[in-house]
Design a protein around this nucleic acid. Structure first.
Lengths: 139, 139
DNA sequence: CAAGTATTTGCAAACGCGTCGCAACTAGCG
DNA sequence: CGCTAGTTGCGACGCGTTTGCAAATACTTG
């Protein structure tokens, strides 16, 4: 069962109709290796099916986020960027020079975050951790 | 020497002119106990001096950020929020229900972040760590 | 498998937040 | 105090995103 079929099944369960446009967008998201923004997704989706408007991309992304099948990121500068949610949780490193986004995961940091929230009497719902970096120049 | 005077001195050193408007904005920032956005700052500044336009608030905030006397935050939902920079570095806990912003600092997390950046061949320039939380309900 | 209905779509106009060009003003210099 | 470059207010603009509306369509039900 493909990632797209999994996502569509999850959406149907949530009472969301599967339209041509939504399938196209899901296909794009499931094959993306990067973190595209709405405009980029629109371009890629239209390559699969000309009948996808930008407004629908935005509306669909809202639906997909609501259903938990995509994650929305708001890195510094520029608009929101998206990523299929069916991958293990991770945080991001952003290269300030190239804009490239990389992923990492630190169990230790995850634990510390939960501990800090608890110390303050809170339950951690989600977090955002972004490291804005520059390539280390080796001397 | 007040915080406003310190900030003005830093700005003069950077070759920035101190106008009535900028003084008003600095006063507002130095007395704010929260993390106001540009519009809120505009309202508070106008209460001190009617001659402050929103455009000037934005322009001044850009200057202040450039000079390092304020920090800009972009929490989820809504526009940028600001905070005087003459306080020790910290990260933020955001209460999802009330929108309230709290501060914390974890030396351990700071170290781990730097280590992770280094592992990936990067130099950490700055980071963003936000914990979105809900009050723990005690059973 | 056709009809019915609630959802979804495209379009274009509207939005919110932030920026900018321009003429008038003013801080800080001499 | 007068000069001049830096700063301001205003309204227009830009960009990413949202929305109202009429037409199109996915899923239900007979």
């Amino acid at each position: 069962m493909s990632r797209v079929e999994d996502m569509e099944a999850a959406l149907r369960r949530a009472g969301v109709r599967i339209t041509r446009q939504r399938s196209a967008i899901l296909t794009v998201l499931s094959t993306a290796e990067d973190h595209p923004d709405a405009n980029e997704l629109h371009g890629r989706a239209r390559a699969l099916d000309a009948a996808v408007s930008l407004a629908t991309v935005y509306r669909t992304l809202a639906v997909l986020e609501e259903a938990g099948v995509v994650h929305r990121h708001a890195f510094e500068g520029g608009g929101a960027r998206f990523e299929a949610a069916d991958v293990p949780h991770h945080d991001h490193i952003i290269d300030l020079d190239s804009g490239e986004v990389m992923e990492f995961r630190s169990e230790k940091i995850e634990e510390l975050q939960a501990a800090i929230a608890a110390e303050h009497g809170f339950e951690l719902v989600h977090h955002r951790l972004e490291l804005y970096c520059r390539k280390k120049r080796q001397p």
